[in-house]
């Protein structure tokens, strides 16, 4: 099964990089769930928690505050002004 390549970056450092099965992020319109094969998306991230289910079935919670999310070719980039692992 295809996996998602996830990059979570804050303005001045990289927060988390790795492979995941599923990413759930909060955008202005509500939560968006991304699985492998998702169509390309560029969205604005609202303040809140992003949950990443890694390939090792581990859940990584990231607090992302203001920024955007881009998805293409199973590559997810969450770039936030401030982001930290919870």
């Amino acid at each position: 099964m295809a996996v998602l390549e996830v990059n979570v970056v804050a303005a001045d450092h990289e927060v988390w990089v790795g492979e995941a099965k599923r990413v759930i992020a909060r955008t202005l319109d509500g939560e968006i769930g991304i699985l492998a094969g998702h169509e390309p998306v560029l969205g604005v991230v609202a303040e809140g928690e992003t949950r990443i289910l890694t390939t090792g079935d581990e859940t990584i919670r990231v607090k992302a505050d203001g920024g955007f999310l881009s998805v293409e070719n199973n590559r997810v980039i969450i770039a936030a002004d401030q982001a930290e692992l919870l």
């Binding site: 202005l28 319109d29 968006i32 390309p40 998306v41 560029l42 969205g43 604005v44 881009s70 293409e72």
Partner: peptide, 10 residues
């Protein structure tokens, strides 16, 4: 790309 919520907002 699909824009969330819209291209302008993004």
């Amino acid at each position: 790309y699909e824009f969330e919520p819209s291209a302008e907002a993004v």
